[in-house]
C-alpha cells in the first residue's frame, strides 16, 4: 500500500510519521521515532517485550498497525517515569534488583503499570493474569511479583 502520514501523540508530544499503513506501531516507535526502549521479541504478540500503553491500555505494539492508532495517546517506557505509578514501579524494580539481561523489562514494566493503575493490591493470581503474556527468558518472575507488590503498596 502507499505510504500515508499519521499524526501520533507519543509520550505527550505530537509526532508526524509517514509509513506504510500496515507498519506495526513497534517499528514506528523504534525505526521512525528512535524510541528503542520498546523491544522486538517475537512479532506475534506472544512475548510482551513490545508492550506500550495505547489509550491507557497495555498493548502489544508489534501487531498493531500504525493506521489503527487514531488519536489514542501512546506512552512508552521512555516516559513512564512521568506517571507516579510508573515511577513507583521503576523504583521497585531497581530496589528489588529485578532485571538480569533487561531486554524484556520495558514490556514487563509497562504491563505492571497497567495492572497497578487498575488494582493497587493485586493478588498473585491477578499478577499472573496481567503479566501472563510477558516472557522473561532470564526468569526474573519471582522478583517481578515482589516488585509489583511493593510498588502497589506505595502511597
Amino acid at each position: 500500500m502507499a505510504p500515508a502520514t499519521y499524526e501520533l501523540t507519543v509520550n505527550g508530544q505530537k509526532r508526524s510519521v509517514t509509513a506504510d499503513p500496515g507498519t506495526p506501531l513497534l517499528w514506528i516507535l523504534r525505526d521512525e521515532l528512535k524510541l528503542t526502549g520498546t523491544k522486538y521479541g517475537c512479532g506475534i504478540a506472544a512475548c510482551g517485550a513490545c508492550t506500550v500503553h495505547v489509550g491507557g491500555v497495555a498493548t502489544r505494539s508489534c501487531v498493531v498497525p500504525v493506521s489503527l492508532i487514531g488519536d489514542r495517546p501512546i506512552v512508552t517506557i521512555e516516559a513512564i517515569s512521568q506517571d507516579p505509578v510508573g515511577r513507583a514501579v521503576q523504583d521497585a524494580w531497581v530496589s528489588h534488583d529485578v532485571v538480569q539481561c533487561g531486554y524484556c523489562q520495558s514490556g514487563q514494566i509497562m504491563s505492571a503499570v497497567a495492572l497497578l493503575k487498575r488494582n493497587r493490591k493485586p493478588t498473585d493470581k491477578n499478577i499472573e493474569e496481567s503479566m501472563g503474556g510477558n516472557i522473561c527468558r532470564c526468569g526474573t518472575y519471582v522478583r517481578i511479583r515482589e516488585a509489583i507488590k511493593m510498588a502497589g503498596a506505595q502511597p
Binding site: T36, S81, W93, V94, G102
Partner: peptide, 8 residues
C-alpha cells in the same frame, strides 16, 4: 545496570 534497563 538496573536503572537504564528500567527506563528504556
Amino acid at each position: 545496570d538496573s536503572r537504564p534497563k528500567c527506563d528504556g
